[in-house]
């Protein structure tokens, strides 16, 4: 595969950049490689890039399978249309990269897995303060609507957001929310040079943010977790030791410890190291290890006061990719 990529690079390969359930930040980050985007343009024909260039789905549909050399796919899969596009891009691409946190782990849209379609639609179309007067009949989007002129179609909105690899086979992962421009460039160079790791790898380093963090570390013993607005941490010592729930120790490095560098705890956007099945569980067991108490009641207090939103804290980026993937649907109905 690497040889094929290299050869096609010489003969100007085909690149697609697609988005599904995501915010668009990944596209901004791609453009943030600055003038190097021209090198990308020299190396590839960009055949599909809804945010930045023209390109039609039907054109892609008409390409032979495997005609696209590389597809950078960002966003999770929430609707039938996104699912179709994931399958289409998979079929048409030699190399499919889950680009960024949403495609890899579900990211913030994945936190929607704490609710279901009904609850999300209730919030959007019924309970939202802006929707009530507009939608007095409580209309909901329908997959099919018969009109005199014919039938209208909307994508089906699923209960559960899936990651790209829960939908189709994925070749590589690029971590980050969004991936940093320099890491994107490194990945593109690796693709162009055919120096890719084994299939299924995350393109990046396999150590955690602490490795790149310059703060001094001692024994970790935490009596109280603070939220970021409650304290101004000093700039020398480990943020976790100062009581801020910094995810850096469980989060894949490669960002250069961006957040801790500016006195803000790591929130875990790069996901876990290789071999870790469940980022949140891993981080939780690490946190459980540093709470400085043997008294169950005191421990409960430390957790309740300091971590009011455990799912949003430990699974901020990775709920859809976690072992449980979502909150039990029956529990939501009740």
């Amino acid at each position: 595969m690497s040889e094929a990529t290299a050869t096609s690079a010489k003969t100007k390969g085909k690149l697609a950049i697609y988005w599904a359930a995501s915010c668009g930040g990944c596209e901004i980050s791609i453009l943030a490689i600055d003038e190097k985007i021209l090198d990308v343009g020299n190396a590839f024909d960009i055949v599909m890039f809804p945010c930045g260039a023209d390109g039609k789905v039907r054109d892609v549909e008409q390409m032979p399978d495997g005609a696209i050399d590389v597809c950078l796919f960002n966003g999770g899969i929430r609707t039938s249309e996104q699912e179709y596009m994931a399958q289409l891009m998979r079929r048409k691409s030699k190399v499919l990269v889950a680009f960024g946190s949403c495609a890899s782990e579900g990211c913030i849209p994945g936190l929607g897995n704490m609710s279901d379609r009904k609850q999300i639609f209730d919030t959007v179309y019924k309970e939202g303060s802006s929707t009530y007067p507009v939608n007095p009949k409580d209309e909901r989007p329908q997959a099919e609507t018969k009109m005199p002129e014919g039938t209208l179609h909307l994508p089906i909105f699923y209960d559960t957001l899936k990651t790209l690899d829960q939908t189709v086979d994925v070749d590589y992962y690029l971590p980050g929310c969004p991936p940093e421009a320099e890491n994107i460039w490194k990945a593109i160079v690796a693709i162009l040079e055919g120096k890719l790791p084994p299939k299924g790898s995350t393109i990046g380093v396999n150590t955690t943010v602490c490795d790149e963090c310059k703060r001094t570390r001692h024994e970790k013993k935490i009596k109280k977790f603070h939220r970021t607005w409650q304290i101004i941490p000093n700039e020398e010592e480990c943020l976790l030791e100062q009581g801020l729930l910094c995810c850096g120790l469980a989060t894949r490095a490669g960002c250069g410890s961006l957040c801790p560098q500016v006195n803000s705890p790591c929130i875990g956007c790069h996901g876990p190291n290789d071999g870790v099945e469940d980022f949140g569980a891993r981080l939780m067991s690490a946190m459980a290890s540093v709470i400085d108490s043997n008294d169950p009641e005191e421990i409960d207090g430390i957790i309740k006061d300091g971590i009011p939103d455990p799912v949003g804290t430990f699974y901020r980026f990775s709920l859809a990719k976690s072992l449980l993937r979502r909150k039990n649907k029956a529990a939501i109905a009740n």
């Binding site: 396999n206 150590t207 955690t208 943010v209 602490c210 490795d211 570390r217 024994e219 120790l249």
Partner: peptide, 13 residues
């Protein structure tokens, strides 16, 4: 050792 970031969680555990 390659993957260890030296976070010092394990040492005291």
């Amino acid at each position: 050792e390659e993957g260890c970031s030296g976070c010092k969680i394990c040492n005291t555990m």
